[in-house]
């Protein structure tokens, strides 16, 4: 029997899993870098500059671009294939599994939108065109805007849902299935799905309230704190 290609489905799965795990690693390092925001503009800008001139970063950047492209392409191809496999829809709908496991395409799309905005606000002006010299200032300006902050927070909630399925799913795709290790991996996955977005959201809110202290005072449980 002739098919659309040799194992093509399994190849896309493997690509999505491996690049996905790499991107999770990137998320952790990026978050670590973001925490320098707490040290103020001097340290943050200095650290950012230091990273920029590090030759190793060139390699990582190339890998990152490849990983993002491969991950997005395989995600789109798999989603399209899977939708075509489902055929006519059920009239009586019962969702057997958690919504975020079935809506990876949606959380993926929101993260892609976020990625584009993020590249436009920070990465491109700082890294490529050089329009932005003071990165801390650019971050502070962006997060002073309540809408930007809200978008950022929502995007990371979606990232959390994406990760909640992604981690466990990646290991299953790699063929890892073990009486002891699979439940352990699942717990690690849920931990990461909460911890990573929480870290980013914390820093976003930190920058927002720093720029808008009057909003902080407006919080009922903080009234009275000057």
């Amino acid at each position: 029997m002739r098919g659309p290609g040799f194992y093509s489905f399994v190849v896309y799965k493997l690509s999505a899993a491996l690049t996905g795990l790499f991107l999770i690693l990137f998320l952790v390092f990026h978050l670590y870098g973001n925490f320098y925001l707490l040290e103020g503009p001097m340290v943050y800008n200095w650290k950012a500059r230091e990273l920029l001139v590090n030759p190793l970063i060139r390699v990582v950047e190339v890998l990152l671009v490849i990983a993002f492209v491969v991950h997005i392409v395989s995600g789109v191809v798999l989603t399209a294939r899977n939708w075509s496999g489902r055929g006519e829809r059920y009239r009586y709908v019962f969702w057997q599994t958690a919504f975020f496991k079935r809506l990876m395409w949606l959380s993926g799309a929101v993260i892609l939108l976020f990625l584009v905005v993020h590249l436009g606000t920070f990465t491109v002006p700082y890294r490529i065109t050089g329009e932005v010299q003071d990165l801390y200032q650019a971050v502070a300006k962006a997060f002073a805007n309540p809408w930007y902050t809200l978008f950022y927070v929502l995007a990371f909630v979606f990232l959390g849902f994406h990760l909640a399925h992604a981690w466990e799913s990646a290991f299953q795709t790699l063929g890892v299935f073990h009486r002891v290790w699979t439940p352990v991996l699942r717990s690690i996955g849920y931990f990461l799905a909460v911890a990573i977005p929480l870290g980013y959201i914390f820093l976003a809110l930190y920058m927002f309230f720093k720029a808008n202290p009057e909003w902080l005072r407006a919080l009922p449980f903080l009234s009275g704190v000057s």
Binding site: M1, R2, G3, P4, G5, F6, Y7, S8, F9, V10, Y12, K13, L78, R81, N82, W83, S84, G85, R86, Q96, T97, K101, R102, M104, H165, E168, S169, Q172, T173
Partner: peptide, 21 residues
């Protein structure tokens, strides 16, 4: 495994997205 996987794709089945339904 090769032949069965290729057949599954060719017959119009979707792929696994690990939802475990």
């Amino acid at each position: 495994i090769r032949k069965m996987l290729i057949a599954m794709e060719a017959l119009g089945f979707g792929g696994c997205s690990n939802t475990y339904a």
